[in-house]
Amino acid sequence: MTANLQVHEQCSSPMLPAVVHIRDRRSEAPGVFTLAVEPPSAGWTFRPGQFNMLYVFGVGEAAISLSGDPADRGTIIHTIRNVGSVTGALDRLRVGDALGVRGPFGSSWPLDEARGHDVVMVAGGIGLPPLRPVIYHLLRHRSDFGRIVLLYGARTPADVLYGDELDQWRQRADFQIQVTVDHGSPSWRGPVGLVTELFPRCGFEPSRTVGLMCGPEVMMRFTIREFLKRRVTEDRLFLSLERNMQCAVGFCGHCQFGPNFVCMDGPVFRYDRIRSFFNVREA
């Protein structure tokens, strides 16, 4: 009615979830499980680092990273930790149950920029699932990249995710994997300590390295220092941030971090672009 205002053609609401079914479910570790769900549409794809909003009937939505192989168009994989009402309800779903999906949302890991570089991934706790799609991509296009390193810190040996896959990847000569735990057990043969202490034990060439980090912010802050100590430059460091994401499309405002909407501008950020806010408390 009002002249001049160009409103787009009637669009469907970005808030409407698509209903899909669970095809498979497996336990990964205490309180952590993986759901394989059918894609909401043919040709549905995502980029490593992105996330979906998963809805449980009547309970609510939670932002969950995509943790499957981006080349697998047939199934969507989410590894989820049961920490609240929605993830708890997701934990109670079984094969064949329905759930709502919106997505994929957000930015992704810089796989194109990383081509020709050494790629060092540093994951902590539930920060490994958002990096797993990167691992699949790197291994599928192995010759496009230099050395590949995964440093992974978990709370205890029982909390180590994807143990079978890690063992499988360790067999490869072209993939350096180090897993450390905060609290060892007498039967744990691997390293005990903070993930940053694994740096001296892996080989990469800092001048041509891209660092990808996902985990608690304090872990990432200490990891950034390790990278910088080795003179990997800030524009080659990428981190995935966690915030309270509710709408995933920049409307609700909850996930703001400095001038960024983590749901749209993130969750993956290049460190030099957010540094002045990353180091401000409560930004």
Partner: peptide, 24 residues
């Protein structure tokens, strides 16, 4: 190689505290 720093817990065996490796 790797070296484990630990302490003996008595009934709990040896508790690993930290693992050291090349360069340490």
């Amino acid at each position: 190689g790797h070296v484990g720093i630990g302490t003996h817990l008595g009934k709990g065996g040896t508790a690993p505290i930290q693992t050291l490796g090349p360069g340490d």
